[in-house]
Amino acid sequence: MTLKKTSIYIILTVCLIISVFPFFWLVLTSLKPGNEVLEPTFLIMPIFDNYVNVLTDAKFLNRLGNSFFISIMTVIITVPIGCLGGYAFARLRFKKKDNYFFMLLTTRMAPPVAFGVPFYLLLSNNHLVDTYTGLISAYVFMNLAFCIWLTRGFFEEIPYELEEAAYMDGCSKLTSFIRITIPLSVGGIITTSILMFIITWNEFFFASILTRNEVATFTVHLTTFFGSRRIDWGELAAASTIVSIIPIIFAIMTRKFIVRGFSLGAVKNSK
């Protein structure tokens, strides 16, 4: 290896260390015994007390379950709706298609906070604050444009000839969509679902205003560490680590597509 190559690796490694350090520090803090948490020292002996405490806390487990249920339900409801919409934008003919596409775009660009008050009023008028239905509706709305976008891209990649052949054989648009398009883009649909799961799992704003106690998610639970009592940073770190594991595993699983997902389909996969 030349000197130049070596220095590139050195710089990259330094950048990577800086990039991963905050997460590393989080995990390290979570493994420290109570009296060392506030000491800026490296770890001597890992201790799992914080994890034991967090994982035996019924409230935390309950809210982790809520997060899981809400994210899964959001994906299950959004994906079929979004695939149908994505197919319409990819393959079907209708007036002012581009304009509608831009309208979809606005819901993706708008800050969720801007929808806060109207959503809260809508749900509270219908007695849906702090219910699964309420929060899941908000998430379905926020994710739908994302889902339409990504699936549209995947559907467009399927050779049109295959669908054309199905039309020739007398299939309706819907039958060919279900029999040809969906099976050919299962990979893309699964990736879209995983990304939507990550986004919903990580969401904080809507969870904080549309829930109180019954259906509160883990992101809301983390804020309760800052109550009146002394902040237990060790347990907060343990809880944070636990909830980060799922998105990290999912991200590594879908790493080929994640750039495409987060760039709203604008960047196709690199290798």
Binding site: S19, V20, P22, I198, N202, P247, F250
Partner: peptide, 9 residues
């Protein structure tokens, strides 16, 4: 990849 998939919270 790790930083960008961690919850902002």
């Amino acid at each position: 990849l790790i930083p960008m998939v961690i919850s902002p919270t």
